[in-house]
């Protein structure tokens, strides 16, 4: 399914302090996808989420959710939106099950203990249902936040840094939960600092910086467009120059000629092929290298590059 579930046009937000948090954001989210919004601190990720979810009043632009203007039909639209904020924010003295029931009721759903049990079990919280939230571990508290957001079965779910500050095991557990939600058809927009998370989970990735969307594309397409292969060949005796037979490749010498560096490829496998060809040419010509190291650029490399080259736009 590729129909649009969220359409944001020219969204702007300038805070009273004068800080421009969103500067003309255009973004379209497709139904059923997992969209990762990447950006450094202060990029505008939380403001963007807050504008859709009601915590922030945009100063310009238009938001359509489920094909309806959010400004006009906010109540109807919000019934089907869920939010897991970054901070652990709830009544710490209340019991888990009561807080989840409360969230379901507030979103206008009829009481349904079977559904509450299902949500709590899916997050391994059922055994803790009568525990006071303050008595839970940090990871469990975060699960309670997710349970509250899922209690009303939202079609569109925002996860603001869902795995910030949780250990690796719990993070992977969360990823499984998110994957299960995708299987059920929930559209998920997550913001994250963990590029690994975006690589692991997202169908599409958007990069935001200084309130502007720098890039939005399929994760694989981004890797294909901006991905790079880097290879280092090391030599005991320095090479005086790059051999003429390797002139067609993007190579340069480093460390006084003892390291031949390749940077190229486009994320489609071309880089790996060229590195293999270079190795074969050197073997054929008797150029002895004592070590070889290759690595593919990660989404993180691309992300860092984009932030340093803001002129690269989608």
């Amino acid at each position: 399914m590729t129909d649009t579930i969220l359409d944001i046009r020219g969204l702007e937000k300038t805070y009273k302090s004068g800080v421009k948090a969103l500067d003309g954001v255009d973004l379209t989210i497709r139904r059923g996808e997992i969209f990762a919004l990447l950006g450094p601190n202060g990029a505008g990720k939380t403001t963007l989420i807050g504008s859709v979810c009601g915590m922030v009043r945009p100063t310009g632009g238009r938001i359509e959710v489920f094909g309806k203007d959010l400004a006009k039909h906010w109540k109807q639209v919000r019934r089907d939106i869920g939010l897991v904020p970054q901070e652990l924010s709830f009544d710490m003295f209340d019991k888990v099950i009561r807080q989840v029931r409360f969230s379901r009721g507030m979103f206008g759903c009829e009481p349904d203990d079977a559904r509450i049990e299902e949500v709590l079990r899916s997050l391994s919280l059922w055994d803790k249902r009568d525990a006071q939230i303050r008595a839970l571990s940090g990871g469990m508290k975060r699960r309670v936040m997710i349970a509250k957001a899922l209690a009303h079965d939202p079609q569109l779910l925002f996860l603001d840094e869902p795995t910030a500050g949780v250990d690796v095991e719990l993070r992977r557990d969360m990823w499984r939960q998110i994957d299960a939600l995708r299987e059920k058809g929930t559209t998920i927009i997550l913001t994250t600092h963990y590029i690994e998370e975006a690589e692991e989970m997202a169908d599409r990735v958007g990069v935001i910086s200084k309130g502007r969307i720098l890039l939005v594309d399929e994760k694989d397409a981004i890797m294909a467009k901006l991905g790079r292969t880097e290879a280092h060949f090391t030599f005991d005796a320095p090479l005086p120059a790059i051999p003429a037979s390797l002139g067609e490749y993007p190579l340069h010498l480093e460390q006084g000629g003892t390291c031949l560096v390749y940077r190229g490829g486009d994320g489609t496998g071309k880089g790996k092929r060229e590195v293999a060809e270079i190795a074969q040419v050197m073997a054929r010509e008797g150029i002895v290298f004592t070590g070889m190291e290759t690595r593919e650029s990660t989404l993180e490399d691309i992300f860092v590059d984009l932030l340093h080259e803001p002129e690269v736009t989608a």
Partner: peptide, 13 residues
């Protein structure tokens, strides 16, 4: 506590 987010994001006026 920050829990006001839920009230603001819920369909309640």
């Amino acid at each position: 506590t920050g829990a006001i987010y839920e009230l603001l994001s819920a369909p309640v006026g």
